[in-house]
């Protein structure tokens, strides 16, 4: 491409340079301030912090799993139903996406609290005798994050199912396949790229998630982004926060690179 081709992109490039690349480099500078890698050693060496990383991975993995479990049928349904239902489905998927994460998270606090709507309904119905602990714990974070991230799973899966020629499923049916077998032998393998794209997206977004775990976890569920914020706000330990950020960034890149390799292999079939 000639140099001229860059001109229209210049404002965006300058913006990225000034407000993204520059701060990132600054942060990198913070993390190695003393000319040593001590902060990295602390982030990766102390059990406490490793535990936070591990928690983060565990939550991200679970969130991805639940999103897939809920998102595949939903994406599939929207892709294969009549246009009217598809539009309705889209509205339900996209509406939360257009609402602020903060608003949605507060809504979940109202729903999940000890005296929240869910607990009161279950108590009134006589299904439970004591309120379930749904808020300020692992379960609450999980529920909130799955809800917030679900659209990122549904949309790629919807796209993958849409791209399939409906005649292929019809052919399988005509050849004697039950719906169950069509699903496992035809749909799943042929929509793997969508499943994969959605999963990577949800997983990567989960790794750095802040608002939902901070509010629904109530300080008791420590994810890496929550820890970083604590380091900056409460202990003013910028170098350590910076080191933690870069470890997270490195992990995210690693996941992404792995995913890229995998998709390239996928793409050949």
């Amino acid at each position: 491409m000639s140099i001229r081709g860059f001109f229209p992109a210049l404002p965006a490039l300058i913006l990225l340079l000034a407000f993204f690349l520059f701060p990132v480099v600054r942060m990198l500078g913070f993390s190695v301030e003393a000319g040593t890698l001590d902060w990295y050693a602390k982030a990766l060496g102390e059990g406490l912090y490793l535990q936070v990383f591990w928690n983060t991975f565990e939550i991200a993995l679970l969130v991805t799993g639940f999103c897939l479990l809920l998102g595949y049928p939903l994406g599939f349904l929207i892709a294969t139903t009549t246009p009217t239902w598809a539009t309705l489905g889209f509205i339900f998927v996209l509406l939360p996406l257009w609402t602020s994460v903060l608003v949605r998270t507060y809504a979940w606090m109202v729903l999940l609290g000890r005296n929240g709507i869910v607990n009161r309904w279950l108590l009134d119905a006589g299904i439970i005798s004591d309120p379930l602990p749904l808020l300020h714990n692992f379960t609450g974070v999980l529920i909130g994050m799955v809800h917030v991230l679900l659209p990122y799973m549904v949309l790629p899966i919807y796209g993958a199912v849409r791209r399939l020629d409906p005649a292929i499923a019809a052919a399988a049916q005509g050849l004697g396949a039950s719906n169950w077998r069509i699903f496992w032998r035809i749909y799943i393998p042929l929509t793997l790229n969508g499943i994969f794209a959605g999963s990577v997206l949800v997983f990567v977004l989960s790794l750095g998630f802040f608002i939902t775990p901070a509010l629904l976890g109530g300080g008791r569920v420590m994810m890496i982004a929550v820890l970083i914020e604590q380091q900056v706000r409460e202990t003013l330990n910028w170098p350590f926060a910076a080191a933690l950020s870069f470890v997270l960034l490195a992990f995210t890149f690693a996941v992404y690179a792995l995913a890229q390799r995998f998709t390239r292999l996928e793409g050949n079939t």
Partner: peptide, 30 residues
């Protein structure tokens, strides 16, 4: 699925992720 009727579709509707053997074996596996 229960009619035992073989059909060739306009655009063949072959299973793109299965080999020739996999495609032809499909109705037998079912």
């Amino acid at each position: 699925a229960r009619r035992d009727i073989g059909m060739v579709f306009q655009n063949y509707a072959l299973f793109p992720h299965l080999t020739v053997r996999g495609n032809v074996a499909f109705p037998l596996e079912m």
